[in-house]
Nucleic acid binder design. Structure first.
Lengths: 363, 363
DNA sequence: CTGTTAGCGCCTTCAA
DNA sequence: TTGAAGGCGCTAACAG
């Protein structure tokens, strides 16, 4: 089946004794075909193993049945979160009969041009959006169908899917505060990204600060490169400089392993001495729970939603622009309050006592 | 630039005052064009923002400038390793001016047909190869260009890139034995995959057994589903049933977190009581070292090699078939010999003593 | 209901 | 060195 060298629609037509047009009609269903002929055509297609050439069809249709996933690499390494998007978008696209072109682009200008001007994709799913994003502006100006995962400062005119940062940070911070934590820190991405107005970071910071203010606790922000080494080094500094700190909110997935180790190497226990909440992919969280409370990044849900919106738009240009906020699921680990009442310098003294953590003994 | 609605080669030709043929010639360079005209053409292309329609070009050329990455999902979840392939293949392909179509296929028959019969891709990179693989057979029968990441039982007639399992297992097992371990286990994937003749698993088992035999140590094999929960449960059973076990070789990346936790929850220390060597992605290994010795899975190197071979073949059909073995880099953690001389039942007694692991105290 | 004609946008003969 | 004509394989518009 389909193992044949080169079967065109002409071969099928000749085999049945009709014109190529009729075969085309039978396949696309865009015009009526007599039941008898349609059956003979279908049989011939089966026998000859015919499949329409996608390029010829794309040329005739003016569209390629392909959506592109544009992933600018912020730095060299990809987080698990970003990679999960690929899988979820690919799967969602497949169920709607779209192919997926991935573009890990360093040069967005060129990549966009390939996709749009060369007509390689009918629509685009955009990752890693900035508050001011030239890609978004350009796509909107062109009227090219796209969905942003993340959103610009004023996203009213576009389709997007994003995390509900406000509710997420409120939920995380208020959770720590309810447990008795009074001094917490946000371990974020590098300052450079913030300066470039990387949207998730901006919204996270604003939401974190806002939550801390409303709840009356001190919340500092630590900038940290997106890798484990930086996480280790920066967190070690943080813990050494601020002995009153008892709660960490980590939104830098790639740094998380380092944070984890820094806490351990400082002789502190999780969660008794320091409670850590991490926003990360579900695989990491599986690993880190029960010591960690994890906000599981909803890559799969977001990827699916993006493709759904994009496919709808490709099918019908008349839709209103859509935005969708998604709240990550929070998997509660063994978070507890600080071992001593926060405010006393007791936290670090436990270190000298050399207590055991074997077996993750609870209480 | 390139922001224009629809610029065809005709527009460029008209703008310059030559025929489309000449413009085409200037672009492809497949026939001489006067220097003066070529310059005017290039300027017009720049001004008008012209880019050749990829579908039309593909139709005329008979090839699409696209390679496909075919990723059968063995189970639901993708390991970090598999996902790294996507990134490395995409990057390598980009530098050779190929687009990458990803296909996370459940139904390979259909996916292959889309790619080959519908001419969506010029070549294929195949992941997750089995010893007998119908995809390989079919692609070979068709003479369709492809590179397998992994290899069939007798891969002489195909292009492939694979791990050097023999040398890897020898190196891992002999390393443990040199440290004094006499009883070790391989934590592998599920039995189902082995039965289906999943190639990496077969080769790993054979190499592991062979190394154990040559070195005169007992090496058992534990089958384990590819997720953290199974890793935890199965490893806990293993440790409980075999108190003499002191060394683990884990080739199941998705189970590794569970293995790690099982060791901790059994009250055993790594590496003093149990030495663990894991074959996993570099991000995991960053997290796990220093307690773990890691064989870093060379996804990036393999992805690059695959694209390189494939691109060469697409450029020139006359090449001899190529195979390439790659040996993972081994990052040595704190592996040590067993705490007591192997052979005595001492390993487990340490548990009752309730010693501390705080700060990963060395010695 | 079906066939003929024309065109999607590019490339490649073949003449000039 | 250049242009005109024809084709890649399919679909859309128009007759019949």
């Amino acid at each position: 089946m389909g193992t044949t060298g080169r079967v065109r629609i002409y071969e099928v037509a000749a085999h049945v004794g009709v014109s190529p047009t009729t075969v085309s009609a039978a396949i696309t269903g865009k015009r009526p075909v007599a039941e008898a002929t349609r059956q003979r055509i279908e049989q011939a297609i089966e026998e000859l193993g015919y499949r329409a050439n996608a390029n010829a069809r794309a040329l005739a249709y003016g569209s390629s049945g392909t959506i592109a996933l544009l992933i600018p690499s912020l730095e060299k390494s990809l987080s698990q979160i970003e990679l999960e998007f690929v899988a979820s978008v690919a799967e969602a696209a497949r169920s709607r009969e779209y192919d997926v072109l991935v573009s890990f682009s360093g040069d967005d200008e060129l990549a966009l041009s390939r996709l749009i001007d060369e007509r390689r994709a009918d629509g685009i799913v955009l990752l890693e959006v900035f508050l001011d994003d030239f890609r978004v502006e350009r796509l909107r100006a062109l009227g090219f169908p796209f969905v942003a995962i993340g959103r610009t400062a004023r996203p009213s005119g576009i389709d997007w899917v994003d995390i509900d940062f406000e509710r997420l940070q409120w939920s995380l911070v208020s959770g720590l505060v309810a447990l008795g934590h009074r001094r917490i820190a946000l371990i974020s991405g590098p300052y450079d990204l913030l300066k470039r107005r990387y949207a998730p970071q901006h919204r996270t910071h604003r939401a974190f600060k806002s939550a801390c203010t409303k709840l009356g606790v001190q919340g500092d922000i630590l900038y940290c490169e997106r890798n484990a080494e930086a996480g280790l080094r920066r967190t070690a500094e943080l813990l050494a400089n601020d002995k009153m700190l008892t709660g960490l909110v980590v939104v830098n997935e790639l740094a998380l392993p380092g944070v984890y180790r820094a806490v351990a190497e400082a002789g502190l226990r999780m969660p008794e001495d320091v409670s850590v909440i991490g926003q990360c992919d579900s695989k990491w969280s599986t690993f880190l729970v029960p010591r960690l409370t994890a906000a599981q990044f909803p890559s799969i849900e977001m990827g699916r939603a993006a493709v759904e919106i994009l496919a709808d738009r490709l099918a019908d240009r008349a839709l209103a622009r859509r935005g969708r906020l998604i709240l990550p699921t929070i998997v509660a680990g063994e978070s507890t309050g600080p071992a001593r009442v926060a405010g006393s310098p007791e936290r670090r003294t436990r270190r000298a006592q050399g207590h055991s953590t074997a077996g993750h003994a609870r209480q």
